[in-house]
């Protein structure tokens, strides 16, 4: 695992800043607007995975990293690890289409799992509805909300590739608590069965999906609640 700092063709360095699934506060944005000119940044670029790449001269890297940390942001990591999580703007305050607190869940997953070692890079996407703005079917582990706290789980998607493929549905409408249990199990099995540099979709192809599925009874189950049902019968 290395830091997400990449030398560019023109000699400057692209530094990847990780956010809580794309959310940047006004204070952080204001801080960056001061920090970037101070360190002589040539520019910045938003990435498809909700990070911000800033172009920095080599001699300013250390100063920039310190400034980023002071703003409560992080320099990302790179390599065969669980990457930062892509999360949509789905929650009770933002996107009106969202069925759940998808963004909050994505942030919690990122906090718990990001940077864990894996045989190959492992990407997670969370979407608050079937529209899937974060492309959950193209991630190694994708979640799509189906209700206030229920998610369909897809595994083995591969977006950026010469052989792109969609993930396959592993669980239907499980709770956010169950998502953590499922992901923890999945990563343990992947670390155990995956060959070095083998993407999880290839591991699944080689050994089948069964080892990745939690045995019946080990999946936390909760009584589903339906707010509208109560409203209708009120």
């Amino acid at each position: 695992m290395g830091k997400a700092i990449f030398k560019q063709r023109n000699g400057v360095f692209g530094v990847g800043i990780v956010t809580p699934c794309g959310l940047i506060t006004p204070e952080q944005l204001g801080g960056l607007s001061k920090l970037l000119p101070e360190v002589g940044a040539l520019g910045s670029k938003l990435t498809t995975r909700q990070t911000l790449i800033v172009l920095i001269p080599e001699e300013a890297l250390e100063r920039f990293a310190a400034g980023v940390t002071a703003l409560g942001l992080d320099i990302g990591s790179f390599g065969d690890i669980v990457r930062n999580v892509k999360g949509c703007a789905g929650n009770s305050s933002l996107c009106m289409r969202s069925l759940s607190e998808a963004h909050g869940l994505a942030v919690e997953i990122q906090k718990k799992f990001m940077n864990q070692p894996t045989p190959h890079d492992f990407k997670i996407s969370v979407a608050g509805c079937h529209r899937g703005c974060t492309d959950p079917l193209c991630a190694d582990f994708g979640l799509i909300a189906t209700g206030p706290d229920t998610y369909d789980v897809y595994i083995g998607g591969r977006g950026g590739s010469r052989r792109p493929q969609h993930g396959q549905k592993m669980y239907s409408s499980i709770s956010s608590d169950a998502v953590f249990v499922v992901l923890d199990h999945l990563l343990k099995v992947y670390r155990s069965l995956g060959e070095p540099a083998e993407r999880i979709c290839s591991t699944i192809k080689r050994v089948g999906i069964d080892p990745f599925v939690l045995p019946e009874g080990e999946l936390p189950k909760e009584e589903p609640s339906n707010d509208f049902f109560d409203f209708l019968n009120d």
């Binding site: 009106m96 289409r97 069925l99 509805c129 206030p148 229920t150 339906n226 707010d227 509208f228 049902f229």
Partner: peptide
Amino acid sequence: KNVFTIPQ
């Protein structure tokens, strides 16, 4: 509730 979708 400011929602577009009602699950189930």
